[in-house]
Design a protein around this nucleic acid. Sequence first.
DNA 1: CCAAACATAGACCGATCGGTCAATAAAAAA
DNA 2: TTTTTTATTGACCGATCGGTCTATGTTTGG
Lengths: 196, 196
Amino acid sequence: MARGPDKQFDPEEVLREAMCLFWAKGYAATGLAELQSAMGIGRKSLYDTFGNKRQLFLKALQLYSETVASRVVTELGRKGSALGNVRRLLRKLQREHSQPQSTGCLLGVSMAQFRTADPEMAAVLRLHLSHVEEAYYGAFKRARAAGELGSTTNLRDLARLYMAIHQGLALIGRVQDVPAVPRSIVSAALAILESA
Amino acid sequence: MARGPDKQFDPEEVLREAMCLFWAKGYAATGLAELQSAMGIGRKSLYDTFGNKRQLFLKALQLYSETVASRVVTELGRKGSALGNVRRLLRKLQREHSQPQSTGCLLGVSMAQFRTADPEMAAVLRLHLSHVEEAYYGAFKRARAAGELGSTTNLRDLARLYMAIHQGLALIGRVQDVPAVPRSIVSAALAILESA
DNA sequence: CCAAACATAGACCGATCGGTCAATAAAAAA
DNA sequence: TTTTTTATTGACCGATCGGTCTATGTTTGG
């Protein structure tokens, strides 16, 4: 048997480029021409490697989800004060979503575009949301054990609220160029924890 | 001078149909064929009346914004307890965004699709956000005057947080079919007010 | 050296996109 | 009625869409 030449590109690397393009422009507004230009590969290679546009997007979505989710988990799982971790993470998000060219969250953008129409797509989105929720829930549970949170607050509800704030912040950061708004949102979100 | 026949349709009525379609499917995914079918008018009439697809969408966006914003203002401006108004509004939102076919918020969907790339579009989105923010701010200010809110809380921050929760809830409701999640979000959001 | 197996570039496909235009119908002013 | 203005319809336009396929390397096993 014979073997041809190896791929001249790293699939994950070009996938990351595609992800960034989808992230900034959305699914429908991103054409194949732009994609192959940003990815730096020919169209045949694209289809041979990723199937089609929808599958490429799904893979990009999963890559994004893994990247973001693992980051949230890591940030919230650090040693030390669990509430301190939450505060640090939210302040970072605030800074990121205050930048004028902030593209928000690819997951959020995608939720807006597909809804439950595409089951496979919806599954990825739901899974990601639950990952974020669990990360916050774990942090809050640890905070309570450490006496950082009162015993009356419903931690599951609180975690879901933070997930919503997380997404809302990203969404608003996409359109709002005034840094004061994200700052307010995060400040108020953190103030909750002081009296909870 | 002579005058021809009047329009055989009500522009605002067909605009509302277009709005619903954009709402459910997003801008790019909604084609002219679908639009003229849903609106029940010919293509020439569509272009004569609304300009082009983008302008049609802008008009739909403004119609939606007016509808929603005026509703929020009305709900939060009712007589009686200001915090009671906030609670009632959030419970209503919870119910709406728990329904499986919830399409979320057209403004949120649009934020995800255009960002600041289109200045005119971004202006409508920002204006809407500020309307919602002001409605909440007014309610909170009234609540403080009535002694329903402590004097330490920053009301501007709180209003912006509620705006973010408002949008986040709508976004998540689009993809999440489990009613427990919106319920949790709203419960936790209302719990904030108890100790603020 | 040859041939099988691979990857590449880019021409090419039908379908659909947003947008325009000519032909027809209809109604009011003269 | 005749004329003028308007609305409606549906054919039509070039451009672009996502997707395929052929022609051309290029590399490795025989």
